[in-house]
Design a protein around this nucleic acid. Structure first.
Lengths: 344, 344
DNA sequence: AAGGCTTATTCAAACGTTTGCAATAAAATC
DNA sequence: GATTTTATTGCAAACGTTTGAATAAGCCTT
């Protein structure tokens, strides 16, 4: 920090007034004459006075800062969420302190600790893939720290969770493929320890059931790391090993879908004529691949903004956690593009 | 913040010692008996003591927090840079406070102000597209605030800038197209107020010159907003209006390249046989589009980490700004993929 | 036994604010 | 002219920590 930044005391000295008077004058408290207010403000301006938020925090035991903990920043979905968080936080006068865990539990815990040390007013958390027990979260909840979980959320009493309707999204996607006339729909699933992935798989299964289609376990393949390379690999095998090939693929996310798409093209299969493909998340890549990829839109920005609204309301005691019926579920939306449109 | 968080005073009361002793004991200062140290640490543990970083900041006039100001979070390049920043900051014990300007100058200024209020130890800035004069930066520099600019950097005395060798990257890309036997290379340029874009265009021009190829101004088109839609539009016209069409395109970034690719396919042109395309940045999409897109890799993570290293070194007075020869230029790397490989 | 070192601890001020209460002075009331 | 009211300002403590200087006790030295 810069030495010589003007403080209230400097203004006080300059005007031969006390610090308390300056403080009140700057804040337009009643009981300060208009004349002094004016003078104080002039001098403040002249000295380029800037209130010291740290001192204020210490005094008020409030930092006007929220801590955001996410698995990774370089991720279309999460960066979109951050954007929503940042937007609301900024407009309500809060700072955002950000850390990424790189999917490491240890880092998650240590981030929580530094943030606690930094007296942040509340947490926004989407936990890492490594996180399987939630004790470190329970502790925070017990101590009444305001927390909102989003996307990857724990099953904890009293936790406020903001999620997307993964089940419905997956259901819609699968239903859409069925309605387009595809008969054997495979699913490239995500890691089983993430609820969101389980929900997507559940939506997929339920849609099949609802349309009296058999669920074939050999066509549900886990593509845990979610990279296009891995998915390409898996899809290759899927195509090669089965005489009776699937004619559609519902993928757990868009990267996986893109990988599957590459494998299909490589095998000489036409999309959407021979194989229909639907992804999940509706990333930018959907409109850039050829053919354009149908996908389930997740309102990332809204997740961020909604979650932040809730958190700030909790912090400012406008509402308490138990007044919020959790989880808050935001709607997904199926975006149909070429990759799944067999029929006109 | 949670009420009832244990403080040094609480430990002091419990052990009938003074606050100063506790402080020193916790920090293993000499002059405290081993016995007391032990007792203090036990009690600290028991009470779940956590140092109050805010109080520390006030005392030390140091917040161990750096402020990051970027145009937008939802952007592959910037999110990668953030990741690099976060990594280094975390490992050196600093917090990262993040704001995005959404390309608005006003927001840039106001972010600087809140960060100043929050006594951050230094700034990392990539400025907005609206920013054309740099007075608000000069002021900070004059007051000796540590700042490192990255990617979009101002021309200011005493500023430490970290950038990528855009010129060389563009030169390499263009040279590559020439060597592949393309004869008429168009350039889809970026907004002229960003130095990075001007540099890329300059690299393109110089590569043409160096190979005795004519520079045709009608084939240098500004695609200012950088969206694939816009670029598709422009490329369509480029193809339609000229009898003597370009047979290659060097785009200012990958999105623009992807848009151009779509327009070419639409017009029935084969890539890379009829048209060669090279983008810039090497985003994820490069491997997902068909054919895969050649591009110039920008080391985003390294920009972030290098810039942060420099900033923290400045903050910790290991080096001063004038000892750093600015700009620090990181190398780009041409990644050749299918979209530009006419020859084997 | 008095002075001088060590060792262990405490005191008090400081960082920049805010805020309940007290103090002062001027003005208004009777 | 004495008393109350009103308007304006100041005092001092507090938030949690660090740190230079001061203190107190114990031990050694001569």
């Amino acid at each position: 920090m810069k030495i010589g930044q003007a403080t209230i005391k400097d203004i006080a000295r300059e005007l031969n007034l006390s610090a308390s008077t300056i403080s009140r004058a700057l804040k337009d408290y009643p009981g300060i004459s208009d004349e002094t207010k004016k003078k104080v403000k002039e001098v403040a301006e002249k000295l380029n006075y800037r209130p010291n938020a740290i001192a204020l925090s210490l005094r008020k035991s409030r930092s006007y800062t929220i801590g955001v903990i996410i698995p990774e920043v370089v991720h279309f979905f999460f960066s979109t969420v951050i954007s929503g968080i940042e937007e609301v936080a900024f407009s309500r006068g809060y700072n955002v302190i950000l850390t990424q865990t790189n999917e490491k539990l240890e880092r998650e815990k240590s981030s929580i600790n530094t943030m606690l040390s930094n007296q942040i007013d509340g947490f926004m958390i989407s936990f890492s893939k490594e996180t399987s027990d939630f004790d470190h979260f329970s502790q925070l909840l017990e101590q009444n720290y305001p927390i909102v979980f989003f996307d990857r959320v724990p099953d904890l009493d009293g936790a406020v969770n903001v999620i997307v309707d993964d089940y419905q999204g997956a259901y819609d996607a699968t239903k859409h493929l069925i309605e387009q006339g595809y008969n054997t729909i495979a699913h490239l699933a995500g890691p089983k320890n993430l609820k969101i992935c389980i929900e997507r798989e559940r939506g997929y299964r339920d849609a099949l059931k609802a349309h009296q289609m058999p669920i074939r376990e050999e066509f549900i393949l886990e593509c845990a790391d979610g990279t296009p390379e891995h998915s390409k690999e898996i899809t290759r095998k899927l195509i090669a090993n089965f005489a009776d090939k699937p004619d559609a693929i519902f993928a757990n996310n868009d990267m996986v879908a893109a990988g599957a798409m590459m494998a299909c093209k490589e095998a000489g299969l036409r999309i959407p004529e021979d194989v229909g493909i639907v992804g999940f998340s509706d990333w930018q890549i959907c409109t850039l691949v050829d053919p354009s990829l149908s996908s389930v839109y997740q309102p990332g920005f809204q997740i961020g903004s909604k979650a932040t609204e809730l958190l700030l309301d909790m912090i400012e005691k406008k509402i308490s956690a138990d007044q919020i019926q959790s989880p808050v579920v935001l709607n997904t939306k199926l975006i149909m593009r070429k990759s799944s449109k067999k029929r006109e």
